[in-house]
Nucleic acid binder design. Sequence first.
DNA 1: ACCTACCTGGCC
DNA 2: GGCCAGGTAGGT
Length: 275
Amino acid sequence: MPELPEVETVVRGLRRLLPGRTVADVTLGPHTVVRHPQGDAFAGAIRGRTWSGVERRGKFIRCRMAGTADELIVHLGMTGHLIVTEAAAEPAPHTHFRMQLDGGHELRFDDARRFGRVLLGPWDALVQAALLPALGMEPLGREFDRQLFHARLRKTERNVKAVLLDQAFVAGLGNIYVDEICHLAGVRPARRASSLTRTQRDALFDHTPAVLRQAIRNRGTTISDYRDAWNAEGTNQERLLAYGRGGLPCLSCGTAMRKSVVAGRGTTHCPRCQK
DNA sequence: ACCTACCTGGCC
DNA sequence: GGCCAGGTAGGT
């Protein structure tokens, strides 16, 4: 479900409440969505702690706690929700943890498909232990580097879609926004990356942050499941040009958009505008 | 560098 | 009943 703009919107929502709140108690559901640490250590390390800040890295949410290098790390998978709510509110189905906060709120995680992941620990140590993946460039950060982008695309035999979906290359892109980026850049997702012109690579590089920033302004894309930290839907689905528009006319040229499978994912492109 | 599996729910 | 879905990991 959630890609970088949705995760960023959740993070901004959490920042409005979490910092300064203390965790009075932690309740875990029957399913083991917590990957690390196992057993009671997870709840024990969080109970009594006070949240300091909330950050995003790729599609991961990082909730920092005062006085420790440990942080709560949440990946929403396809259907996960990290939500702040009144403590009295009925929990959503498939709620996997609840954290009672001072002031009458709870931080809750629910995830029907259980593709999400929850970990606790220092970020770098978890990467070292291979419990977290090493992530590539942040597309909205200063480190998003044009030269590196060109070099990587030039040398791989994979298709453009697979490369852009690779979290070890650029962190945070997913199926929706890769289709949008390719459409705006005029590039077929199935194109072998090494066959692109310099101009096409530049267009992909330039449209990546633009597409993500627009989606963040629109508080994310809600197709069905996605909600932010305050259970609100996004509006970016009203602005999508490619994703979900198979068979519909291209908004640039009117040609019917084509749906296919690229890199194992449903993919939509305009056969006329995208080369 | 590909597959397939992992889950549930919604839609045809 | 079968197919599809915004996510990754793990095996080939």
